[in-house]
């Protein structure tokens, strides 16, 4: 029993997201399945494409997540408008990341709007979180 608990704790730490955020992703997964019957789980490769591709953003100009966060998620980013330094997005480099559903929700909404000029779907949100967790 004790052994199981240790294994469970170890696997949680490998997930690089807090239980609260893991729970949030499970809910995203259910929504994604309801919206698309062929959905079979989140995919980091799709998440990478979402994160690194350039789109016409809210301001009508080319914009990507990497415009501020850069392509190396372990490094600091920089707000492309204000110049303010952004802490690394990778939970490995910055243990504060992916620990609060409230924060995750807020930034996903804002940043999809800024880069895609629309909100992300449940599948897109889960894919991009999976990509961030693995980087």
């Amino acid at each position: 029993m004790k052994y199981l608990a240790i294994v469970w704790m170890f696997s949680m730490s490998l997930m690089a997201a807090s239980p609260e955020v893991v729970q949030y992703m499970n809910e995203l997964s259910k929504t994604a399945k309801a919206e698309n019957s062929s959905f079979s789980g989140f995919d980091a490769a799709r998440g990478k494409e979402i994160f690194t591709s350039t789109h016409t953003g809210k301001q009508g100009k080319p914009m990507a997540c990497t415009s501020c966060h850069t392509t190396n998620l372990s490094n600091n980013g920089k707000n492309s408008l204000t110049g303010k330094v952004i802490d690394p997005l990778s939970p490995r480099a910055n243990p504060q990341r992916l620990t609060s559903t409230k924060e995750v929700n807020k930034w996903l909404k804002r940043n999809f709007m800024d880069v895609y000029a629309r909100e992300g779907s449940a599948q897109e949100k889960g894919d991009v979180l999976t990509y961030i967790m693995k980087n």
Partner: peptide
């Protein structure tokens, strides 16, 4: 805040 100097800065 939904269009805060060209960005989405909405809060809960």
């Amino acid at each position: 805040l939904n269009n805060h100097f060209g960005t989405d800065a909405t809060l809960d």
